[in-house]
C-alpha cells in the first residue's frame, strides 16, 4: 500500500471540498473493499476522505411511503431494519446473503454499490486488465472465467458486479442520490452502473468527486424475494442470483420486476422478461417464457455457460414461489 493522507470530514460539503484537493482522492466509508484494493495495489489514492461520520446513516420513511437509505448506513443495520424486513424482504435477503456478518457490520450502502469486480485478473496487478489499466487487454476472456459475465460483456471486459444488495435495489426501482462539485442529482439505480463497452475502467456514471448520499426506494410494488446460488453455503459471491418483485391480481401479473446478479458488469434488470410478464398469467409457463426472452441475449464464455440455465432456474423458481405466496 502506498502512503496516503487521511482527512476526516464532518460535513458533506466539507467532504466534497477535501476530495477536490486531489483528482485521485477516494472517499472512505466502511473501506471493506477500498482497503482491500489498496492492499492489492489495485488502487493507490494519495488522499482518503473519511466520510464515516457524515450524517448519512439513517433509514427513514419518505412522504410517499417509500424509504430513504443513507449512504453510510451499514449493511447489517439495513438488513435488520424493521421496515426493510417487512416491506422490502428482497433487500434484506440480498444483504444477508452477501459477505459475512463482520463485513456487513462495516460495509455501507454507498460502498456496496461502488465495490469493484472480483475478477481475479483485475485484482492482481501483475496481469494486464482493461478495467485497471485501459488498453492492456483482458486475460479473463480466454482465461479462467467461470465466475464472469454472460450478459452485456464486451471484447474489453467480462467482469461481473459482485454486489447482492444492488441486484435487489435494481428490482426495487431504487434511485440513487449523488452530490458533486456541480450539485446534486438523482438517477435510477439501473442507470448508475455501466456496461463495460470500450470503457471498462468506468464501473458507474459517477463523476469525479461525486458522492453517493442516499438511495431512495419507492413504496413496495409487490411481494419480493432474493435467491442466490453459490459454491459454498455461505460467505461466497453469487454464481448467479435473482431479485424479483411481483404483484398478482386475478391470476395475472400486475407488476413484475426482475434483476439478475452475477451475470453482468452491472445488476441486470430484466426488462425483456418483464415485458412478457406484464399482464400475462402468473404461472410457471409464463415465467419460463419471460426468463427465456431475457436470457436469449446471453453470450456465455467458454466455461460459464452453466450460468444461463442456473439463472433461468433461479428466476422461474423465485417467481413461481412469489406467485404461490400472493
Amino acid at each position: 500500500m502506498k502512503p496516503f493522507e487521511h482527512v476526516r470530514a464532518e460535513r458533506t460539503e466539507r467532504a466534497l471540498a477535501a476530495h477536490a484537493r486531489h483528482p485521485r482522492a477516494q472517499y472512505l466509508a466502511g473501506g471493506t473493499n477500498l482497503v482491500d484494493l489498496m492492499k492489492l495495489g489495485v488502487l493507490d489514492p494519495p488522499l482518503l476522505v473519511d466520510i464515516g461520520r457524515l450524517p448519512l446513516d439513517t433509514v427513514a420513511e419518505t412522504s410517499d411511503g417509500g424509504l430513504g437509505i443513507g449512504a453510510t448506513v451499514r449493511n447489517s443495520d439495513l438488513a435488520a431494519h424493521p421496515l426493510v424486513r417487512s416491506r422490502y424482504p428482497v433487500l434484506s435477503q440480498a444483504l444477508l446473503s452477501g459477505a459475512s456478518p463482520q463485513l456487513r457490520n462495516v460495509a455501507t450502502t454507498g460502498g456496496n454499490l461502488l465495490q469493484r469486480t472480483r475478477c481475479p485478473y483485475f485484482q492482481d496487478v501483475s496481469h494486464p486488465c482493461n478495467k485497471r489499466e485501459p488498453g492492456t487487454g483482458c486475460p479473463a476472456r480466454d482465461g479462467v472465467h467461470r465466475d464472469l459475465a454472460v450478459l452485456g460483456h464486451s471484447a474489453h471486459c467480462v467482469a461481473t458486479h459482485p454486489s447482492d444488495m444492488a441486484v435487489a435495489l435494481a428490482a426495487l426501482d431504487a434511485r440513487v442520490r449523488l452530490l458533486g462539485p456541480d450539485g446534486a442529482r438523482e438517477l435510477p439505480l439501473t442507470d448508475f452502473h455501466r456496461l463495460p463497452g470500450d470503457r471498462p475502467e468506468r464501473d458507474t456514471v459517477l463523476r469525479p468527486g461525486e458522492l453517493v448520499t442516499e438511495v431512495v426506494l419507492p413504496p413496495p410494488a409487490g411481494t419480493s424475494a432474493y435467491r442466490k446460488a453459490r459454491d459454498r453455503a455461505s460467505y461466497a459471491f453469487a454464481l448467479a442470483s435473482v431479485a424479483a418483485v411481483l404483484a398478482v391480481a386475478d391470476g395475472r401479473v400486475r407488476h413484475a420486476a426482475l434483476a439478475f446478479g452475477g451475470l453482468a458488469h452491472r445488476p441486470w434488470r430484466a426488462r425483456a422478461a418483464e415485458e412478457v410478464l406484464r399482464g400475462a398469467p402468473a404461472d410457471e409457463e409464463t415465467f419460463a417464457r419471460a426468463v427465456d426472452a431475457e436470457l436469449a441475449a446471453a453470450r456465455p464464455l467458454r466455461d460459464n455457460g452453466f450460468k444461463v440455465p442456473l439463472a433461468r432456474g433461479l428466476a422461474v423458481r423465485v417467481l413461481t414461489d412469489l406467485a404461490a405466496a400472493s
Binding site: P120, Q123, D124, P139, G143, R232, S234, F237
Partner: peptide
C-alpha cells in the same frame, strides 16, 4: 500464466460453518 488463479480465501472455498 503458470499460476493458480484462486489465491485468496474468497475464491478458494474452504468450507464454512454452514
Amino acid at each position: 500464466s503458470g499460476e493458480f488463479v484462486e489465491r485468496d480465501l474468497a475464491s478458494y472455498h474452504v468450507p464454512v460453518n454452514a
